[in-house]
Write a protein that binds this DNA or RNA. Structure first.
Length: 640
RNA sequence: GCCGGCAUAGCUCAGUGGUAGAGCAGCUGAUUCGUAAUCAGCAGGUCCGGGGUUCGAAUCCCCGUGCCGGCUCCA
């Protein structure tokens, strides 16, 4: 007998080899279809996996993140079975659960069509209805190899060959479909509830563009049809918030083919929004001891050779021949900042030096990756280079982290932190990389921030911390980044004179807070769904006179508000009030001020808010002061 | 860059081998109105570009460009 301890519950003696499913039932845990797997001493197992020794057991329910993931993974297997039965000769590659669903990659002679998607979905429904058990079986390496070789599943064979020899191999089978899989899975196909196939796309085998392009089918699955429905509605909401759509509707920006793909043209309201953000940035950087600098748009190619960009980044750069000399258009702002540092002898007393530039850069992004404002070829970074001593590195990084979090709080973003380490293609010594990586880790530790490590994801010149901010729909965007660089100071022979009178090598940090202003604006538009807070709203107030009789009064109010610094518009078109309100509402203007005979008489205002709230008969001065206050550029609260 | 889809009026879209359409937006006029669309009229097109098939191409084929969804890359 073995002792089964229910997590946070009673325990019980069971015969050796009892299944978690049976044990849970005996322990009084309802054996309905909400329980899809078991957690045994923290390890996720099938409900049918025999238990051999004393353990702590907990049910994994469909409404938990793990339960949902297991069900989605099982749905991927069902999709693969459906595809194989409908498309004989297809080879299956890999099919995991992902954040909002699952996918499976297939090697097929002809790409799938949207009609195929419907057929596959139908076949999956049949498989689910048959409620086939997911049977697990451990096999030897040879047996597994033979099985997949016989089936011609070359991708599975390749996966097998990469699995360490000492690792146990398991197969999962439902119906006559067998897949190599670690598991666990739901007990049977009937556990897969509400699912839907969402899209088709190409994907390289193992993400390598030199390997075959496979066809990837995406799907999603939820515990209930209602949750699936909610998810689909969330996708609809994301579409409504899409900054490309709102950018046009709100008159913020254009991206025109005739101007060039990935080239943003700011319309008046978009340009205003951006300059408000820039004003905020300049003020915050000056407050924190940064110095504003400006570099040229292109620099001689020799400088890019010296910096390492020629060798490591040339493919992403634009060049221009001027008379006899080749110039590189800057893809980064650091090189000019190096020259600023070198413009005179530096003392340790000056360090840290913090050079800030709203620097416009051009990068030749591959054509398939461009996307609205979030991926463009010309963008402006809120870039700074901090040059300091080795001893100052960690506290400078901590300072930048604090800066980032104070700014994120103002815009109302949540975020995640990632630390990226040395990539394959890189410059610098092992010792330098280690020193830099430790400094970044140290700062994260000082602020006790949780973070993920991304091995090999660093920049070619140094490791980095990325802050991925999450928008209102929980999508992640990389904006802020802090990168250590021990190599550029060396390449440009930066030195400072220390207390000992000797020249020493400083360390450099590259960092951005918002990242690309274009990208940040795109994310901001989606985050606020176009309804910007008053301090960022391109138009804060629109005056809506009801009849011609009050146009003079409206004009007077307009002039007063302008003089008071409000961003106000006056709509004197001969349209109905309802019509004007609707338009202002769709433009998401914070305050719509209705002006009729009553207001002209009493010299008051009747503002309507975007949320439909109406304020009656408000004194003019009170309203102006209110909007002035709300429109003030916010000052960050100290985060720590 | 790669895979797939798409490209018709400013926007959203209909039109599938036989005379280019609708709604919204725009313009003109009427309406002077109290919180999300007043009415009428007018104008608006190299059907993405180039080549081909055909008596005839928005429609079929080829090439190119751009966009969309992914992959890869990344602020």
């Amino acid at each position: 007998m073995i002792k089964i301890q229910l997590e946070q519950g009673p325990s019980r003696e069971e015969p050796e080899g009892v299944t978690p499913g049976q044990a849970l039932k005996d322990l009084g845990v309802a054996a309905d279809r909400q329980v899809v797997a078991a957690s045994v001493d923290g390890e996720l197992l099938d409900l049918t996996r025999p238990l051999e020794r004393d353990c702590t057991l907990a049910p994994v329910r469909l409404d938990s993140p793990q339960g949902l993931e297991i069900m989605r993974h099982s749905a991927a297997h069902v999709m693969a079975e459906a595809v194989r039965s409908l498309f004989p000769g297809v080879k299956i590659a890999i099919g995991p659960a992902i954040e909002a669903g699952f996918y499976y990659d297939f090697d097929v002679p002809e790409p799938f069509t949207p009609e195929d998607l419907a057929r596959i979905e139908k076949r999956m429904a049949q498989i689910v209805k048959r409620n086939l058990p997911f049977a697990r079986r451990e096999v030897s390496r040879d047996e597994a190899l033979r099985l997949f070789q016989d089936q011609g599943e070359t991708y599975k064979v390749e996966i097998l060959e990469d699995i360490p020899a000492d690792q146990a191999l398991s197969l999962y089978q439902q119906g006559d479909f067998v897949d190599l899989c670690r598991g666990p899975h739901v007990p049977s196909t009937g556990y897969i509830k509400a699912f839907k196939l969402t899209s088709i796309s190409g994907a390289y085998w193992r993400g390598d563009e030199h390997r075959p392009m496979l066809q990837r089918l995406y799907g999603t699955a939820f515990a209930t049809p209602e949750e699936l429905q909610r998810h689909l509605e969330l996708l609809e909401e994301a579409k409504r918030r899409d900054h490309r759509r709102l950018g046009r509707e709100l008159g913020l920006f254009l991206i025109e083919e005739e101007a060039g793909p990935g080239m943003v043209i700011y319309l008046p309201k978009g340009a205003l929004l951006r300059s408000l953000i820039e004003d905020f940035e300049r003020r915050e950087h000056l407050r924190r001891g940064y110095q504003i600098v400006m570099g040229p748009q292109m620099l001689k190619a020799d400088l890019w050779k010296r910096s390492g960009h020629w060798d490591n980044y040339r493919d992403n750069m634009y060049f221009s021949q001027v008379e006899e000399t080749l110039y590189g258009i800057k893809p980064m702002n650091c090189v000019a900042h190096m020259l600023i540092y070198k413009s005179r002898v530096r003392s340790y007393r000056e360090l840290p030096l913090r050079f800030f530039e709203l620097g416009t850069v051009l990068r030749h992004e591959r054509s398939g990756v461009l996307h609205g404002l979030t991926r463009v070829r010309q963008f402006t970074q809120d870039d700074a280079h901090i040059i300091c001593t080795e001893e100052q590195v960690e506290s400078e990084i901590t300072g930048v982290l604090d800066f980032v979090f104070e700014v994120m709080a103002i815009f109302g973003f949540e975020y995640e932190v990632e630390l990226s380490t040395r990539p394959e293609k890189s410059i610098g010594s092992d010792a330098e990389w280690e020193l830099a990586t430790n400094a970044l880790k140290g700062a994260l530790k000082t602020r006790s921030l949780p973070y993920h490590i991304c091995e090999g994801e660093g920049a070619f010149y140094g490791p980095k911390i990325d802050i991925k901010l999450k928008d209102a729909l929980q999508r992640r965007w990389q904006c802020a980044t802090i990168q250590c660089d021990f190599t550029l100071p060396e390449r440009f022979d930066l030195t400072y004179v220390a207390a000992d009178g000797q020249r020493h090598r400083p360390v450099m940090l590259h960092r951005v807070i918002l990242g690309s202003l274009e990208r940040f604006m795109g994310v901001l538009v989606e985050h606020y769904a176009g309804a910007f807070p008053v301090w960022l709203a391109p138009v804060q107030v629109v005056l809506l006179p009801i009849t011609d009789r009050v146009h003079d009064y409206a004009q007077e109010i307009y002039d007063l508000m302008r003089a008071a610094g409000l961003r106000v518009e006056l709509d004197t078109r001969p349209e109905t009030l309802r019509y004007k309100i609707r338009e202002a509402q769709m433009q998401k203007i914070p305050y719509m001020v209705v002006i009729g005979d009553r207001e002209a008489e009493s010299r008051t205002l009747s503002p309507r808010l975007r949320d439909g709230t109406e304020w009656k008969d408000m004194p003019l001065e009170t309203f102006i002061e209110w909007v002035q206050e709300e429109g003030r550029i916010p000052t960050p609260a100290k985060s720590r």
